[in-house]
Design a protein around this nucleic acid. Sequence first.
DNA 1: TTCATACTTTGACGGTAGACGAATTATTCA
DNA 2: TGAATAATTCGTCTACCGTCAAAGTATGAA
Lengths: 231, 231
Amino acid sequence: MNVEHYADAAISRIAAAIGEPARARILYCLMDGHARTSTELSVVAEVSPSTGSVHLSRLKAERLVKVVVQGKHRYYSLEGPNVAHTLEGLSVLAGGSRARFVPNTPSRLRVARTCYDHLAGTLGVLLHDRFQTLRWLSVDSTEAYDLTPHGAKAFEALGIDLEVTRMLRRRFAYGCLDWSERRPHIGGALGAALLKVALKRKWVLQDLDSRALGITSLGRREMLARFGVHV
Amino acid sequence: MNVEHYADAAISRIAAAIGEPARARILYCLMDGHARTSTELSVVAEVSPSTGSVHLSRLKAERLVKVVVQGKHRYYSLEGPNVAHTLEGLSVLAGGSRARFVPNTPSRLRVARTCYDHLAGTLGVLLHDRFQTLRWLSVDSTEAYDLTPHGAKAFEALGIDLEVTRMLRRRFAYGCLDWSERRPHIGGALGAALLKVALKRKWVLQDLDSRALGITSLGRREMLARFGVHV
DNA sequence: TTCATACTTTGACGGTAGACGAATTATTCA
DNA sequence: TGAATAATTCGTCTACCGTCAAAGTATGAA
C-alpha cells in the first residue's frame, strides 16, 4: 500500500487533532516539555475530566502525546521534539504578518523561554553564537553540532556529564531554529542539559504557566563571568 | 491586547483550517509551489466548485494561501515557504514511527522532489553539500547563506541573473531542512532559481501530480560534468 | 475489605461545520 | 450587446464531533 498517496489524509488527521480548541490548549500547555496529569490538563482545556480524557486518548492515538502511568496518575507529555517544533511552526503561521512587522511577542517570551526542553529566545541565541565564537561548538549546518575539546571542558566544568548526555537516545546537539529570533539556538540533549543546569543553579526561573523564563541577577552575573554574555 | 495569551486559540484556528480533509488535499496539492485555479482545486479536493470556493476563502482568511486574479481566473497558491514547511512538519508527524524505522517514502520522492519551489530530496542535499565543498556557498548556520565569488561565477555561468535574484522580496538563500534526508538543501531565491534552470534545461522533469522530479540522462551527465555529483 | 481518588468508557444530546444546488457577480469573446 | 465561462454567495440540510453526567475500572489508603 502506497502511504504517500494518502499523505494529505494523514496530514489532515493530525491537523484536525491539533485543531480542536480544547486539544490545542492541552498541547500548548505541554510545550514546556513537562508532563501533566489528565485532571490538570482538563482544567487547562476548560472541559470536564471525561471530555478531557477523550481528547487525550485522541491525541495519544495520533502519537502527539505519550503517557507514563504512575500508580493511579497518568502523566501526559508531548511525544517528542518533532511535535513541539511543528506546533511552533503553526504558531508562526498563526502570528501572521502582524508578528513579522510589529513583533508583539511579550518581551518575557522573547528574552528567554523554553523550546520544548531547552533554552530559546534571545538568551538561547546569544549563548549559541557565543559558544561558536569561543570555538566551544563546532557547527556544521543544522545537523549534528558537536563540542570541541575546549567546549567539552567548559561543559564538564558546569557539572554536565557528557558521557551520559551522549548516551541518551536523541540527537546530541543541533541548531534549533528560533521563531522569535529567526536564528538558531542549541537543541538536543546538550541544550536540555544546559537548561537543566541553568534551572538547578537558579540562573533562570521557570514560569509556572507559560514557557517564559526569568533571568535572575545571579544568572546575569554568571552569564557574564562564565560566557561573556550580557543579558 | 495580548496576542500571546491567545496563542493556543490561534494555533487551533490554523490547524483546524488545515485539518479538514478537502482543504488538506488542496494544500497538499499546492505544496509543489504552483498556482492553480479554483475549479482545478475543487476537482483535487473532490468537492463541488461552490464548496471548493468556500474552502479556499477560508484558507485565504487564515493566510495559508494567496490568490492572484487574472481575468476571470483566480490562481491560488501557498502563501509562502513557511506554510510549506509547516505542512512538511505535519507530514513528518503523520508518518509516525513507521517512517522513522522503515522509510517507505517512495524512492521517486526521495531521490529528487520539489520543496515548495526549490530542489529537495537526495539530489538537493547532494548539491547543497557539493557547493559547500567547492566553496561556492558560504554557510553560516541555517540563516543567510551566501555565494562566494567563485560560486557567483558558477551560478552566473548557468544563466542565473544574481542581480535580479537578490532583488526578489525573499531571503536570498538558506539551509532548508529536508525531512526525508534530515539534512539541509538550498532554499530561498537561489534555490528557486536553480530549480528553474534545471527544469528549463530539462535536467529534471516535473511530475504533474506530485512533487516528484525525474532526473533525465542529460541531467545525470550535466550534474557530473558541472558539479562532480553522481546521481 | 471497604472507602476514596484518579481516570476512562458509555450513551444521549445539541450545535456547528461542511455538503450541494440555485442564483448572483464578474470577465471574456463573439 | 449578449452568450459563455469562472467563480462566489446564499439557503438549506445532514452528519458528525464535542459536550457532559453517570457508570465502570483501577489503584492506594484505612
